[in-house]
Simulated assay, not measured.
Amino acid sequence: MSKRTRRRVRGWGSVVGAIAVLWLATHWASVWPVLLTGLAVAVAVAVAGWAGWGLWRVHRSAMSLDRAWREQEEAKARELSMAQVDALSWQEFETYVAELCRRDGCTGVVVSGGSGDLGADVIGYFADGRKLVIQCKKYAPHRSVPSQDMQKFVGTARLEHGADVALFVTTCRAFTKAAMGLALRQDIVAVHRDLLGAWVKGAHLESLIQLNGSGGSGS
């Protein structure tokens, strides 16, 4: 841009600025209320935003506390129901698991546990015809299901019994890491104490299958 052009631009800028100042001076009485209104609106929006953010933080904190409380209460309810399961003998436990299967719509459910059962304590069929084979282990809550138990069930659930869905159900809190890893690799549904407690409290068998591997971390 040449010097002459720059001078023209500065000149026109000065003219426009002078016109703007003159216009404001002559219309200040009408402009000032508009500016005040705009400022008030901006302040109101800022205050509302700050208040909304504060309320959202309080709401989120309350929801978090409520969720934690509900989880604690659900855990307590599961343990109360599991106390009755803990009082069962291992034979009664197998019969009880069979009853849960019938409750959730399984048919042809039989308890076959005993000497020579080859890991099939309960056998039944889903409504769609899939064969269900369950291994039941009545262990103390503090124990973990070892890899050896899972290996035996893996070796018979499908090859020997033709299971479409295979469940390993236990009253203890966890499977060892090796046992859980084997279950996941071989598509065995590992139902530890927490999942069993949910089943006892009314969760459907199909939902437990979807949760395979959840919770009950291996030891």
Rank of each mutant, 00 (worst) to 15 (best):
Q91V: 09
L24G: 12
G38P: 00
D86K: 12
K131R: 13
A62E: 04
C106Y: 05
D104F: 02
I123Q: 03
R60S: 06
G114R: 01
R130C: 07
G114D: 01
Q91S: 09
L65W: 00
S64W: 09
W32N: 10
E74N: 04
E92V: 06
V31I: 12
E92N: 04
E94A: 07
V111W: 07
A44F: 06
A75H: 12
A83Y: 13
L36Y: 00
K76I: 11
H59F: 12
W50A: 14
G54R: 08
L35F: 07
V111A: 01
E71H: 05
L24K: 03
A98T: 02
H59W: 05
G124Q: 03
W90Y: 04
G108A: 01
L65R: 15
A40C: 11
L35K: 08
M63C: 15
D66T: 06
W69N: 14
S81E: 10
V109W: 00
G116A: 03
A87T: 01
G113E: 00
S61N: 13
V122G: 10
P33V: 10
S61D: 12
D104Q: 11
R102A: 04
V47T: 04
S115W: 05
A44L: 08
D121E: 04
D104G: 09
G116Y: 02
G119H: 04
S115P: 07
S115I: 07
S30L: 05
S61K: 08
A42W: 14
G116N: 08
E71T: 09
L39Y: 06
G52Q: 10
S64H: 11
A98K: 01
R60Q: 10
G119A: 13
S81T: 01
S112L: 09
F93H: 14
I123D: 05
G105I: 03
K131Y: 07
L118V: 05
A25C: 14
A120G: 03
E99A: 14
V45I: 14
Y125C: 02
R78Y: 01
Y125R: 12
W28T: 10
R103T: 08
F126C: 10
R78L: 09
S64A: 15
V47I: 15
A87F: 07
A46Y: 07
V109F: 10
C101M: 12
A51V: 13
A68S: 04
G49N: 10
A46V: 09
C101E: 08
V43T: 13
E94Q: 09
G116W: 00
A40D: 11
A62T: 07
W90L: 08
L65V: 13
S30N: 06
G124S: 01
D66G: 11
W56S: 11
L65T: 15
S81V: 07
D121K: 05
D117K: 11
A46W: 01
S115C: 00
L36Q: 08
G116F: 02
W28Y: 11
A48N: 12
V31S: 11
T107E: 13
W50R: 15
L65N: 13
D66Y: 12
E71V: 15
V122M: 13
V109H: 05
D128C: 09
V110K: 15
I123H: 02
S30T: 11
Q84A: 14
D104S: 05
G116I: 02
D121T: 05
V111T: 06
L80Y: 04
V111C: 14
L100S: 09
